[in-house]
């Protein structure tokens, strides 16, 4: 119960954005999919949806932190790929985990320092690091393959108290993020920075340091998603993460988090990710072409950002 109250933002909190809209969308979409594809509501398929949606939920949670500060992290996708490539390296377990963490922290720090201290636009900085990390991932693992350690596969494909492990991964990510956003000073400062970085600075928020920390966290969440994905596909693949850069932004935007910063919520992001997953799963069940799904996903993204009218024209 304590977790649940931490998850939900306080009532009448304008900081949370219109997350209930995505809830309404989700209910409608689930109803439509369940009606037209009876297979959807079977336990087997639902645990399938959970497994499919987990890496997106984890990545999108990290992305939410960044977007609340008014930034954007395009490098999460290639970091996921790099993580899967590191996991299948022939290393002892602890060394592999340390290397993956080191890689994530390095990418996050470079992004954050470039953006906060060296005054580079977030899009440019993370686009550049996306390219570099993608290159490193391709060098580490030129073709998909390798062996994923048994403990990762077990933690991804097993179950706990009869629930699929995917739900445990989601719960852990949500609890960590909920604690950070709603129960720490850092979380409050995220909203302050996103609302107006200058007044945050005037009010004693250490803006630059917090921004760097945010990008490190985003990278670490992406790394977590990489671990999950490696367990699920049972190999390392330097291109597996590519879709997550944009999908995570779609999920966050769907959840009512403002892309200009200062407004956002965790519930929205989780629901937004699930909505993306359910739409994908539903279209699969209805035999919609995978290529047509790309078009529909893009159109959905455009529709979502068009609803969020902003004050200013620009990036």
């Amino acid at each position: 119960m304590a977790t649940l109250s931490a998850l939900l933002p306080p009532p009448r909190n304008s900081r949370a954005g219109p997350w209930y809209l995505v809830l309404a969308c989700l209910v409608i979409v689930v109803a439509v999919v369940a009606w037209s594809a009876p297979l959807f509501l079977t336990p087997g398929n639902l645990s399938n949806v959970a497994a499919q949606v987990t890496p997106l939920v984890i990545t999108a949670i990290g992305q939410t932190l960044v977007i609340i500060t008014g930034g954007l992290d395009l490098s999460v996708g290639s970091l996921i790929s790099l993580t899967t490539a590191i996991i299948v390296l022939d290393l002892p377990g602890w060394a592999m985990v340390l290397l993956a963490i080191a890689a994530a922290v390095t990418v996050g720090t470079v992004n954050g320092v470039g953006i906060a201290f060296l005054n580079v636009h977030p899009i440019i900085m993370t686009l550049a690091s996306m390219s570099v990390v993608q290159g490193v991932a391709l060098i580490t693992r030129p073709v998909p393959g390798g062996t994923v350690p048994g403990w990762i596969s077990g933690a991804v494909n097993g179950s706990l108290f009869g629930l699929p492990a995917a739900l445990v991964w989601i719960a852990v990510a949500v609890v960590i993020a909920a604690f950070l956003i709603y129960r720490t000073r850092f979380g409050l400062h995220l909203f302050a920075i996103g609302g107006n970085p200058n007044s945050a600075l005037m009010n004693g928020v250490r803006v630059q340091r917090n921004i760097v920390l945010t990008y490190i966290l985003s990278s670490l969440f992406a790394m977590g998603a990489g671990f999950y994905l490696a367990g699920r596909i049972a190999s390392g693949d330097a291109n597996v993460g590519t879709v997550f850069g944009l999908d995570s932004i779609t999920a966050v935007a769907l959840g009512g988090t403002s892309l200009s910063g200062g407004v956002g919520s965790l519930v929205g992001t989780v629901l937004g990710s699930v909505l993306v997953g359910v739409i994908g799963n539903g279209m699969n069940l209805m035999n919609v072409s995978a290529f047509l799904q790309i078009v529909i996903k893009g159109a959905l993204l455009l529709a979502v950002v068009s609803v969020q009218r902003r004050k200013q024209i620009g990036l």
Partner: peptide, 10 residues
């Protein structure tokens, strides 16, 4: 007034 990044990427 949607975000230029998202629009053009979409």
């Amino acid at each position: 007034r949607a975000s230029a990044v998202i629009v053009t990427l979409g």
